[in-house]
Design a protein around this nucleic acid. Structure first.
Lengths: 128, 128
DNA sequence: TTGCAATATGTTTAAATAAACATATCCGAT
DNA sequence: ATCGGATATGTTTATTTAAACATATTGCAA
């Protein structure tokens, strides 16, 4: 009785977000933009990346630009014109940032597992 | 030269947020609302808590209510009327949730330190 | 029995974000 | 030359979210 109620009561989930920001809290790069970078790396095209991730080209482009302005260096080398219209690829710095972030996320994820387990163990215990 | 540039390039900070949500991603309780609970616990008043945290009473009240609806149980016992107008105090469940969250945050904070250190070490290294 | 201060809640405005729309530019291939 | 497809960017329209405004309810103490 108390147990089954307890289970229902705490049918909640723990979520988190991780992002890079400036000193004064302005967001630079988060999950979404990193995914975009990754997709650009994969496809060689900002448009293709935006399409694949189902965001408008306009927004994707603006996001990259915004991030670059805040970071102070270029993440994506863009070329336009030509038969194919143009193409984009990550700069070295872009690639490095991307891989560092990926690793970070993995580490994060791993270390979070036990913590959340502990949390739920605790909040579920007192309902009985 | 490369070093000093590198330092400027990566003058960024890592931020995170942690919150409870429903299965389908609706936010229930985050940093702000937990702070509110803590302040209610301290002051015995929703209004005082809202004032102290510089949020409108309307918003504070709505937030608590929203969280309670999503959780399916009451976090705050509210009383109105009387010479003092009314008062509020955390329920047992509210207190438990609060303390569990605090502990969670501490654990989180601690485990994050090395991870972020590693991250910054990595992204700063390749600029030289 | 009335006044007061906090709880309780509907409604409206504003501010912040995202989506949508429109257009210009570039350049390799035809 | 010119066409096409992607990059580049200004402008406008929605959507979401938070703040502000307004007002009712409650119950002890004077």
């Amino acid at each position: 009785m108390a147990g089954s109620q307890g289970d229902k009561y705490y049918d909640v989930f723990l979520r988190y977000r991780l992002w890079l920001s400036t000193k004064d809290g302005v967001g630079i790069l988060g999950e979404g933009r990193l995914a975009l970078l990754k997709e650009i790396d994969k496809t060689g095209s900002l448009k293709a990346a935006a399409d694949n991730l189902n965001v408008s080209y306009r927004k994707a482009w603006g996001n990259i630009k915004h991030a670059e302005e805040l970071l102070g260096f270029i993440l994506v080398e863009k070329h336009r014109g030509g038969k194919l219209g143009g193409k984009s690829q990550l700069t070295e710095e872009g690639k490095n940032l991307l891989s560092a972030y990926d690793e970070l996320k993995d580490d994060f994820e791993a270390s979070i597992k036990d913590i959340t387990r502990k949390f739920f163990k605790k909040i579920n215990k007192k309902s009985e």
